Simulated assay, not measured.
Amino acid sequence: MLAPEGSLQRGHNVLNERGVAAFGALFYLARLHPPADDLSFPLAVLNQYAMRRLLSPVDGTVPGVDLSEHARLLRADARSLWLTLMGQPLFFSRLARDDLRQAFVSDLMVQLYQTLGRTIRGNVPTRIYLIDAAFAPRAANLRETAEDTDRTSVLVAGRQLISRLLDPPGPGSLPGRRLEHEIAGATWGLLDNLFETMDWGR
């Protein structure tokens, strides 16, 4: 079956007569990328920005704190972020800001993970083939001797992101941190295994 990635990502499970995934493999002919007219990424980044501020509110009871000035700065920062997102082409390799690159990679990993999940229903083994060289340009070029980095490959950046999420808490960590680690392991452990077993074709 040949289909746009988005139609499988959150669609119905495609099962065989035994009630398990009907796919044995998934081929990505093109690397995932938001369409030029899709505003979901800049809106998601703005929402994340707003949530960070809401979770760390300014204490208006502290003497000398000017809430109106903080509100003005918040609005100016959000506007600047919006103009940054809307004023440049959305290319992974050209995103200079680390926070925007991480948001881009996070979005892509979620999409990849959701679609991958369609191929393993019922504990079915699957293989994922990333055909587009854009996933890892250096690995795809047999004449290239340098390895891909988090600046050239969304896969390397994704692997680093998942590793940070699954980084075990140190001794004496607070219960909340340990709980976050357990949730991250249950949520992202399968994708981590995918990265650990990936064949880069070298």
Rank of each mutant, 00 (worst) to 15 (best):
R94V: 05
P63T: 03
S68T: 14
L155D: 13
T149G: 13
R159D: 06
A139E: 00
L43M: 13
S40P: 11
L46S: 12
T145L: 12
T84V: 01
A136P: 08
H181T: 01
L191K: 03
G19I: 02
A134R: 11
S40C: 06
V45C: 11
V154A: 00
L29H: 12
L55F: 07
N13W: 06
L46W: 03
M51T: 11
A96I: 01
A146Q: 04
S173N: 11
A3N: 11
E182W: 03
S163E: 14
L46C: 09
R79K: 14
D66V: 01
D59S: 12
A3C: 10
L73T: 04
D99M: 10
N193M: 10
I131W: 14
A103G: 06
L85S: 01
R97C: 07
A186I: 01
L83M: 08
A136V: 04
L155Y: 01
G170W: 01
D38V: 09
E5Q: 13
Q102S: 07
G189S: 15
F92E: 01
T197S: 09
A139N: 00
L116C: 02
D37M: 10
V110A: 04
Y28D: 01
D99G: 00
D59I: 05
W82V: 15
L29P: 01
T119K: 00
R121K: 14
M198I: 15
P175M: 02
P168E: 01
D98H: 15
L179Q: 13
N141P: 04
L2Y: 08
E180F: 04
R178Q: 15
T149L: 09
Q102W: 01
L194M: 14
H70D: 06
L74P: 00
D77Q: 14
L190V: 07
Q111A: 06
S80P: 01
E147V: 08
P171S: 08
A103N: 07
R53W: 01
E196L: 08
R143F: 14
T187W: 06
M198H: 06
A140G: 08
T197I: 12
R202M: 03
R164N: 11
P34W: 04
V65Y: 04
D38N: 15
V156W: 03
L8Q: 05
L165Y: 15
W200K: 02
Y49V: 02
L8S: 03
V58N: 02
W82E: 09
V45G: 00
R53Q: 03
L67V: 15
A133M: 14
F41W: 10
T187V: 15
P35K: 11
A50N: 04
P42K: 02
V58M: 05
L130D: 00
T149I: 08
D199T: 08
E182D: 14
H70F: 14
Q48A: 09
L190H: 02
I120P: 15
G201I: 09
A146C: 00
D38W: 07
G19T: 00
L166R: 05
G158S: 13
R118K: 09
L166C: 07
G189T: 02
P89K: 06
V14E: 08
D107W: 03
L67C: 03
N13R: 10
L83V: 10
D59L: 12
P169K: 07
R127D: 11
R72L: 12
G24D: 11
